[in-house]
Amino acid sequence: MSIDRTLAALADPHRRRTVELLADGPRRAGELAETLGLTPPAMSRHLRALRQAELVEESHPPFDARVRVYALKPGPMAELKAWAAAAEALWSDQLLALKAHLETEG
């Protein structure tokens, strides 16, 4: 299930912060590493996990193939939002039913 992959990837605080930074727009891998205070190899591992979860996509500017630019892919986050909204609705309905039950018992 893709939501499982998304949640597993977002379980790490550095990867969550990376997603937050990319929400503002594409960024170079080096810029992400610097902002997060990570070494380039550590940042590379986090970006690989985000790519495997299909949360980000990588591109190269035409002038330098060594530079990697990362951007968010909207699909997985939209799926996660829909799942969270459904879970919230379920819990809301359950809590309202519990409240109504308690009020009739009291």
Rank of each mutant, 00 (worst) to 15 (best):
L36N: 00
A11Y: 03
A49N: 03
P40Y: 05
L22Y: 03
E54R: 15
H46Y: 04
P61C: 00
L72M: 03
G25S: 06
A97T: 00
H60I: 11
A85M: 11
L72P: 00
T104I: 10
W91Y: 09
Q94G: 07
V19T: 00
L36K: 02
H46M: 06
L50H: 05
P76L: 05
P61S: 00
L96I: 06
P62N: 02
M77Y: 02
A84L: 10
R68N: 13
M43C: 15
A23R: 13
H60P: 12
S59W: 15
R51N: 09
P26L: 00
L47H: 02
L22P: 04
S2F: 08
V69C: 05
E57T: 15
P61R: 00
L21S: 02
G30C: 11
A65E: 14
T39M: 07
A71F: 01
A85W: 07
H46E: 08
P41K: 01
A87I: 01
R17K: 06
E57A: 15
E103Y: 06
R68I: 13
T18C: 13
A100N: 11
L90T: 10
G37C: 00
D12G: 00
G106A: 14
Q94F: 04
G75W: 01
A11T: 03
S44M: 11
A84I: 01
S2I: 13
V19Q: 01
A23L: 13
F63I: 11
H14W: 09
R27Q: 14
R45H: 10
Q94P: 03
A11S: 10
Q94Y: 06
V56K: 12
A97F: 03
G30S: 15
L102E: 10
S2A: 15
E79V: 07
T18L: 12
P13A: 05
R28V: 11
E105C: 09
E31V: 13
F63G: 15
